[in-house]
């Protein structure tokens, strides 16, 4: 199996070469193209229960599609919905990753993906989203960003604060707590400074240069209102 990010930057996609019978997991709907040998298998990755958890609670599509080289070697290309960069991160040495919902594009080799529900352990208002994706095992994962994808190493004992909307992925070795961006909780949320995650090293964080929530709000200012209210 070989995989690489082509056209890195705002129009990135992942190109994967599969040897016979190899397969990858990709976010449903992320497939751009495939060669004849590649089959799309709609298996419920990780079993029915896991897929259900992901779809009902994680906001992911029901299927993390399995793309398999059933009829010989082949090639497949995958891309996220939003314009932005992609990076392939190695899953090795027992290091697990947490990925913000929707930012996990694909997993390669023996990586298990599962949905983790976050607990309100630090008060009522904690939140990078209710659910995050947890990736474990050995292999690689491809994460996608809205805009550029920035990697920040944080040495042991040091702290680093990232706005919730810009957070993409982080090492499972890290611990984080929720802090506010503005003066008060109310000003944090209304001023758009939002809530932020304060990570403690050692470990690494990946963040995106654009905040999708903020971008969505900006787009909305040009759209005539009358739309429905989202309830979940």
């Amino acid at each position: 199996m070989r995989y690489e990010v082509i056209h890195p930057g705002s129009n990135a996609l992942v190109q994967v070469h599969l040897d016979p019978y190899e397969h990858i997991q990709a976010q449903a709907g992320a497939m751009v193209s495939r060669s004849e040998a590649i089959q799309v298998i709609g298996t419920l990755t990780g079993g029915m229960w896991r897929s259900f958890k992901r779809s009902a609670l994680g906001g992911e599509s029901l299927f993390f599609q399995e793309l398999k080289a059933e009829n010989g070697a082949g090639e497949v290309m995958i891309a996220p919905a939003v314009p932005g960069d992609i990076k392939v991160l190695p899953v090795t040495g027992g290091q697990d990753y947490y990925v913000k919902n929707g930012s996990l594009l694909a997993s390669f080799e023996n990586v298990t993906i599962d949905t983790k529900m976050q607990k309100i352990s630090r008060g009522l208002f904690s939140g990078a989203g209710l659910f995050v994706i947890h990736a474990t095992g050995t292999g690689s994962i491809a994460v996608s960003a809205f805009g550029a994808l920035i990697e920040v190493p944080v040495p042991a004992g040091q702290k680093y604060v990232v706005d919730n909307g810009h957070l993409v992925a982080w090492y499972g070795d890290m611990e984080y707590r929720i802090v506010r961006g503005g003066k008060s909780w109310i000003s944090s949320v209304t001023s758009g400074e939002g809530l932020a995650c304060e990570f403690t090293g050692p470990g690494k964080i990946w963040m995106q240069s654009r905040n999708p929530e903020a971008f969505g709000a900006w787009i909305k200012t040009f759209v005539p209102t009358g739309g429905g209210v989202s309830i979940f």
């Binding site: 529900m117 976050q118 607990k119 009522l124 919730n164 109310i186 309830i231």
Partner: peptide, 28 residues
């Protein structure tokens, strides 16, 4: 705050910025 917030609290889950935003105007 809506159904999302309510469910998040029932399940002991984490709450997103969007959910808090829906909640803040009422709080103000």
């Amino acid at each position: 705050g809506g159904l999302g917030l309510t469910l998040a609290i029932i399940s002991g889950g984490m709450i997103s910025n969007e959910q808090i935003k829906a909640f803040i105007p009422a709080l103000q």
